[in-house]
Amino acid sequence: MFKKFEKLYIFSIFSGIIVLFFVAFPVINTFTWTDFNLVVDAFKDPEIMNTIFRSMKTATITTIISAVLTVPFAYFVVRHDFKGKKMMESIIDIPMVMPHTVAGIALLTVLSPKSFIGKLLVNNGIEVLGTEIAIVIAMAFVSLPLMFDASKEAFKWISPRMENVSRSLGASHLSTFVRVTLPLASKDIVSGMITTWARSISEYGAVIILAYHPMIAPTLIYERYSNYGMLYAVPMAVILLSISLVIFVILRIVSMNKFRRRES
């Protein structure tokens, strides 16, 4: 039996090396592909920096909206069994399996002035297509399921008995949720928010259908690649990748330190 486990571990390590190389090498190679002077020039380009800032801003707004909408709903879904529950969960996960351009087309059928909702928005002077609102909608459509699933997993690990104890001591349902349930689930919820933010800032396919302009970073990177080639696309990709990685790592470290202090 021990030899069989040894073979399994050897295969596990070998497969792990392949996975790490497959993910890490393209990222590392991106940084070595371009001239550092071109990266500095890209940093000085107002169009590039404004576009990256717009991507970060809309991704942050998307993450906040997704968390506000999905966390309470995920809690309800976990705590209740009802007819059609599995079907409803499957429907929420549909955007994760849709091609991104198809997701954009699906949203366009709703927001187009030819549709009921689109016409209603236009008649009330609300412009959506070609605005940052459209960008947030596209980002939310493809990333919201990630936040919902992360929240569900967070609440599944919390025993209802702890909530019942709190309520038996006189706390209301809302107070128990805020003071007991949310703190216990916060680690997984924060991880879900980080994943949602990362997924949002990387979205391209659905966004360009609803709002090619104003541009977000992935759109501008693709445009520069199409018009000028790798020489002008890679420096911007390096900047966006660097900023995203730094923010991602900082958020991970802050969240880990926070929960370590709480556990101690």
Rank of each mutant, 00 (worst) to 15 (best):
L245H: 06
K119L: 04
V254M: 00
I13N: 11
V39Q: 00
P214L: 05
E203V: 01
M87S: 08
G125V: 09
L120V: 10
F259D: 13
Y225L: 08
S112Y: 06
S151C: 01
T195C: 14
V78N: 02
A154V: 04
D35N: 02
H173V: 14
T219E: 04
S175N: 13
Y212C: 10
P113H: 02
V23K: 00
A103M: 07
R161I: 06
I221W: 03
I221Y: 01
Y75D: 15
P95Y: 09
I17K: 04
S175Q: 11
T176G: 03
W197G: 02
S191P: 11
E89C: 00
T58I: 01
Y9C: 14
V78W: 00
N124K: 12
K156N: 10
W197E: 06
I209T: 08
L69R: 06
I201E: 07
D45H: 07
R54S: 10
E6F: 15
I91H: 05
L251A: 03
I201C: 07
M87R: 10
F116I: 15
I48P: 00
A106S: 12
G16E: 03
R161P: 04
R224Q: 05
E89K: 01
V249A: 01
T195K: 12
G229H: 11
F73Y: 14
M139V: 00
